[in-house]
């Protein structure tokens, strides 16, 4: 059995996004509960790098298959997500109305500077943007 499909089944049934470490723990627990199966047992001490590689391969396969959903890694955790172009129907499904983006242009610029130059002081941000960023830096 291919590791990537084992991972796919775990992510398909998981109730929350899973980090590579959490996925590894699942594989480890499975091996402890059932060490008769050679495949299950073989994945007991798998390296995190191998899990990541299999997940990336799986994600690429989903990309190539061009289906309506993907396996995506968000903030270090993997999950199944639908493609953005299907949002009109999904929003209607759950009853959410379309709304304008939450972040203004100045906020996005400030965010971009902080994201790519961190750690950075407010004065340095102001120097790049050329304007006062007090309002953007408040929570």
């Amino acid at each position: 059995m291919d590791l990537k499909f084992i991972l796919e089944s775990i992510l398909f049934s998981a109730q929350k996004p899973l980090s590579v470490k959490e996925i590894r723990d699942v594989l480890g627990n499975a091996a402890e509960q059932d060490d008769a199966d050679a495949t299950v047992k073989g994945l007991k001490k798998i390296k995190e790098a191998d899990v990541t590689a299999a997940l990336e391969q799986l994600a690429q396969e989903h990309e190539d298959a061009k289906r309506s959903y993907r396996v995506a890694c968000v903030a270090g955790s993997w999950q199944f997500v639908t493609q953005p172009e299907f949002s009109p129907w999904l929003k209607a499904l759950v009853g959410v109305k379309a709304r304008p983006p939450r972040l203004s242009q100045p906020a996005l610029e400030t965010l971009a500077i902080i994201a790519y130059r961190q750690p950075i002081t407010r004065a340095e941000v102001e120097q790049i943007r050329g304007v006062n960023v007090d309002a953007r830096c408040r929570p």
Partner: peptide, 28 residues
């Protein structure tokens, strides 16, 4: 330099919209 960050901000906006329209599967 400012132009670079302006472009980066535009990319972030694209990502923001994409993420907002992406729905996770949370099965029971």
């Amino acid at each position: 330099e400012y132009k670079k960050f302006k472009d980066a901000a535009a990319q972030l906006q694209v990502l923001e919209v994409a993420r907002e329209n992406t729905f996770p599967r949370l099965p029971i």
